[in-house]
Write a protein that binds this DNA or RNA. Sequence first.
DNA 1: CCAATAGTGTCTTTTAGACAGTATCGG
DNA 2: CCGATACTGTCTAAAAGACACTATTGG
Lengths: 250, 250
Amino acid sequence: MATAKQSEKDFLRNYNIHDYDVPLTSVDLVIFTIRDQALQVLVVKRGDHPCKGQWSLPGGFIDIHNDVDLDGAALRKLKEKTGVEAPYLEQLQGFGSRNRDPRGWSTTFAYFALISSDRITLSHGGNADAVRWCPVESDEGLPKLAFDHAQILDVAVQRLRNKVEYTSLPAHLLPEEFTLSELQRVYQVLLGRLVDKSAFRKRIREGDFLEELPGKWRLGSNRPAQLYGLRKGQGTVYFNRLMTGEVGAK
Amino acid sequence: MATAKQSEKDFLRNYNIHDYDVPLTSVDLVIFTIRDQALQVLVVKRGDHPCKGQWSLPGGFIDIHNDVDLDGAALRKLKEKTGVEAPYLEQLQGFGSRNRDPRGWSTTFAYFALISSDRITLSHGGNADAVRWCPVESDEGLPKLAFDHAQILDVAVQRLRNKVEYTSLPAHLLPEEFTLSELQRVYQVLLGRLVDKSAFRKRIREGDFLEELPGKWRLGSNRPAQLYGLRKGQGTVYFNRLMTGEVGAK
DNA sequence: CCAATAGTGTCTTTTAGACAGTATCGG
DNA sequence: CCGATACTGTCTAAAAGACACTATTGG
């Protein structure tokens, strides 16, 4: 047994990754928010080669001396761009091919994040217009993205829209306190259709992931609205049916 | 404009990945099948360091000179181990950290595959018992796996069991021709519970992803059963509700 | 009082759930 | 005829869908 262990030790001592041809590895982020009643995504202007000057998703190489794991690397990059500490962050999908980066075979771990737009101050590196929000839908609003980032964004939007149908994810796009009507509007923006108020509220109530904030109200020139917050220590709720209804269908 | 292009060319000419510290990158496979009415997974005995002699999931480094993209790399490895060409293959999740491999910071793209056990002849490299199927459940059946492969397997099993509740995925675990009862048994094995026959068949019929094979029957000492096959050119079907029923609940 | 938005009640329609029943083979 | 498995029909219960109704503010 000592021999086998010794043999492994010898192997590791002699192992040098620089002897091999390996792909590049990065982490890229698709950071979503709701602004002006529309789904928007964060893009940055590249300051370095390759694709210098083009817009792209925020991201970059893994720093093997400082990053501990993939999630950590993604969180680090999110913090660098937005200052946000603990939003909703989920691994989206890996992408990798010999073509996607002119420097050679490269892979990326794409993450997608949901944040409330009012929690953020965009950190513009040196360049003043280096970071901005873009509406996902409008054809003129979204610039051509570097690398395969348009494809990554597509996959992310699909995944988000899909999950809206059966999860409580959209709540992460709102500030800490919000009304049910505000939440419903977010769902409607993401779904691209109106949903029935009564059915929506029944659904949310049964999901049981919100808590009423006692005595807190959104005031206006109408009936005050109860404020809610995400129930602590409760992850994403998966409903057991899709949201199939549409208002005015009959 | 010519200057910017030239600048990018100069940059790429001088770029050498060996100047940087990058992580290792591999692709690992969780290959599922149904054998003996149980969910089983393919494991291989490692022939090389590190973790030589330990069981692990099949996989290995990306070959940047021959692989075109991630999916291609995964398909190549699947073919090497099982000879299967076109099963159900889906990217599971990326894993990466400084600890998971003794050689240093490493990442892996885990895939999961579903295949029919009767389509396969395991290709035993040089070593006769280098590849085998293991039941996923039984505690004694599954050996300790190298690296973080136990965790990867866990995530894969969770994902599969989850998708069974609302997709047509389990059909890929059967041979080309099968009966509805056989399909129901697969669902039951994966769900770990019995489901009502009538409700099951209604669900499958409405999913409309199977086609009756006219004049083909499974015979026995009972009423013959209609054989079905997957409808061509139709991807996975997502039902809009979970399979909530349980037999004998009332 | 009116406009505007918040929130609830109720009837209808759909569909899953439960289980009993019929069908068709070999022996 | 019997055992076994395939397949269908029907009643019931529960939930979603549709929409009208009431509630409460500011002006």
